[in-house]
């Protein structure tokens, strides 16, 4: 997979991948009220990782990101389900949602919602599923 002569791809990847990572986090926080959200953010981060795999090859990326994406999927699903179940403990119906405001230094007064936790689950699930699919197909010789 890794070719020695793709200098342009490698140097642009190191730049673009970071932009994609940053943008995916921005999209994740923008989500649930504005365009964005966990699904699209998850796709974006997995596209960044796929780009890295294409530029640097299996061994190198497996070394810097030693993640088992199958567990990633499971963790994401678990977070999403448990967010819904959390409402049980407050006597509210399943999947109830609440929000509050929190002052964070530098960013100012931000709205934080429990929907974001659910979205985090979606984020990680999408990342896990996309990477599992792409890597299994790429691995198949």
């Amino acid at each position: 997979m890794s070719r020695p002569n793709d200098l342009i791809l490698r140097s642009t990847t190191s730049l673009i991948a970071f932009i994609l990572f940053g943008f995916s986090i921005y999209l994740y926080f923008a989500g649930h009220n504005a365009p964005g959200g966990g699904f699209i953010a998850g796709l974006m981060v997995s596209s960044a990782i796929v780009l890295m795999y294409m530029a640097y090859g299996f061994e190198a990326v497996n070394k810097i990101l030693p993640i088992n994406y199958r567990y990633c999927t499971a963790i994401g699903l678990m977070i999403a389900v448990l967010t819904g179940v959390g409402s049980f403990f407050f006597g509210e119906p399943f999947l109830s949602h609440t929000f509050g405001y929190l002052y964070i230094p530098f960013f100012g007064n931000k709205e934080l919602a429990t929907a974001m936790l659910f979205d985090l689950g979606v984020y990680i699930t999408v990342l896990g599923i996309t990477m599992t699919i792409i890597l299994s197909i790429a691995d198949d010789r």
Binding site: Y71, M78, V81, V85, P93
Partner: peptide
Amino acid sequence: MSNLAALPIIIPLISGILLIF
């Protein structure tokens, strides 16, 4: 008690996810 209606869906779902680990 209305949450009872969701339990037959949630329990197997969580079980399935748990067994992946």
